[in-house]
Simulated assay, not measured.
Amino acid sequence: MDRRTPLTPGTLFPNAQIALAHLARTLAGYGIEVEVIPIPREAAPSVAA
């Protein structure tokens, strides 16, 4: 995965997409609305090597 690409539902690995969709459905059953917003990669903190 390109580290400069924003992290969005479309760029998640397939198993993460399934988990996110399942969680959103579960929370909707409790009346909780889920909103997914992209995370720009340059805003993410760098990890010291």
Rank of each mutant, 00 (worst) to 15 (best):
M1I: 14
M1E: 05
D2T: 10
D2K: 08
R3K: 14
R3H: 15
R3E: 14
R4W: 00
R4H: 05
T5V: 03
P6G: 08
P6H: 03
P6C: 12
L7N: 11
T8G: 04
T8Q: 04
P9E: 01
P9G: 01
P9F: 01
P9W: 07
P9Y: 05
G10S: 08
G10C: 10
G10D: 02
T11G: 03
T11P: 05
L12H: 00
L12G: 04
L12A: 05
F13W: 09
F13I: 03
F13M: 13
P14H: 08
P14I: 07
P14M: 04
P14V: 07
N15D: 13
N15C: 11
N15P: 09
N15A: 14
N15W: 10
A16Q: 15
A16Y: 10
A16W: 04
Q17M: 12
Q17Y: 09
I18E: 03
I18L: 11
I18Y: 05
I18W: 00
A19C: 10
A19S: 11
L20C: 06
L20Q: 02
A21F: 06
L23I: 08
L23T: 12
L23Q: 00
L23V: 05
L23E: 00
A24D: 09
A24S: 02
A24G: 01
T26E: 09
T26W: 07
L27P: 00
L27A: 12
A28H: 01
G29W: 10
G29K: 06
Y30G: 02
Y30N: 04
G31S: 00
G31I: 05
I32E: 05
I32N: 00
I32F: 00
E33A: 13
V34E: 03
V34K: 02
V34I: 11
E35P: 10
E35S: 02
V36A: 05
V36M: 03
I37A: 05
I37Q: 11
P38L: 02
P38Y: 10
P38W: 10
P38D: 01
P38C: 08
P38N: 06
I39E: 13
I39N: 11
I39R: 04
I39C: 09
P40C: 08
P40W: 06
R41I: 09
E42K: 07
A43W: 12
A43T: 11
A44I: 07
A44Q: 15
A44K: 13
A44Y: 06
P45C: 12
A49K: 06
A49I: 04
